[in-house]
């Protein structure tokens, strides 16, 4: 009986070890296949903005900048609503809160290609006909000195703002769900004593709940950020797919994931190697974000009781 137990344990451990091999394995694969590009362009690959298949010149900067720009926009648009939405879901009575939680979970389950499609057929015309003319002409932002710099030269519905809006809509439920859990972990005694002192709901949130769970909130934001960085399909449909450094909110561009999806199938030689290098850059970015998220969530994990 002892021996059978040991065999069982080793089988389980072996299966668990697969995951330990997978992460370095992916790194190794991308590293090996991008070796040509790194050898050819060096570290300068990261900030060179060439992309010329005819002359075999490749650089990562338009992609990296586009990825960071869309992610930043998405976070800017999604973090405040996610925060207050989580507040609302925690504070409302159960009969309303539970269906709302369901809805938020369902929103997280819709495939990203549907978001992309909705973006292409609904959001892009909307941006083109109403939102972008409103900002550029009605508000006259395009005429202001810094306007061109902010909005870009022209607009056609596609571009960074459209991608940012879709990404924000996608990551909102994720972040909201994590923040909701963080809010729930504040001890009721602490909250009630603050109410007892005569604080309003907002003051309790700002001075007690947020201070208690600030690391968990950071973890939630990082999780949303990780998703926004690596999102492919939702961005691919609306970004415009131009190999250009971002010129403004309404200008078209590309992100690492979108470039991979567009160009990988037809590429070969040095271009393929450069695409692998782009993938490696994206992987490193995502791992960094994920490690930060895990670190902050781990710090609050003991308080939350982990298993909930």
């Amino acid at each position: 009986m002892q021996r059978r137990d040991r065999i069982f344990k080793w089988i389980c451990a072996g299966c668990a070890l697969c995951i330990g091999l997978l992460v370095p394995g992916i790194f190794l694969q991308l590293g090996l296949h991008s070796a040509d590009a790194w050898r050819e362009f060096g570290v300068g690959f990261l900030w060179s903005s060439d992309w010329d298949p005819a002359q075999e010149l490749y650089g990562a900067w338009p992609n990296v900048a586009g990825t960071l720009f869309t992610t930043g926009l998405a976070l800017l648009l999604a973090v405040p609503p996610a925060f207050v939405a989580a507040l609302f879901v925690v504070e409302v009575p159960g009969w309303l809160g539970r269906p709302l939680s369901y809805c938020v979970d369902l929103l997280a389950a819709i495939p990203s290609v549907i978001y992309g499609m909705w973006g292409l057929f609904v959001l892009v015309p909307l941006m083109l006909e109403h939102v972008q003319p409103f900002f550029a002409e009605t508000l006259g932002l395009a005429e202001l000195p810094g306007g061109r710099w902010l909005l870009g030269e022209d607009y056609n519905g596609f571009g960074f703002l459209t991608a940012g809006v879709i990404l924000a809509l996608m990551i909102l439920p994720y972040m909201s769900a994590v923040m909701r859990d963080v809010f729930r972990m504040t001890p009721t005694v602490l909250r009630e004593s603050a109410y007892g002192l005569g604080c309003t709901r907002w003051e309790v949130t700002r001075d007690v709940v947020v201070r208690y769970g600030v690391r968990g909130l950071l973890g939630g934001i990082f999780i949303g950020m990780g998703r926004a960085l690596g999102e492919t399909m939702a961005v691919l449909f609306v970004i415009g797919n131009l190999m250009e450094v971002p010129a403004g909110l309404f200008s078209g561009g590309t992100t690492i994931a979108a470039t991979l999806a567009c160009n990988f199938a037809e590429s070969d030689g040095l271009q393929r190697s450069s695409l692998f290098a782009l993938g490696l850059v994206l992987l490193v970015l995502c791992l960094g974000i994920q490690i930060a998220a895990q670190y902050y969530l781990h710090l609050t994990g003991a308080k939350r009781g982990e298993a909930r």
Partner: peptide, 11 residues
């Protein structure tokens, strides 16, 4: 495993 969940699907 946690890190692996954060790896972009295109990678």
């Amino acid at each position: 495993a946690n890190v692996m969940m954060g790896v972009p699907s295109i990678i």
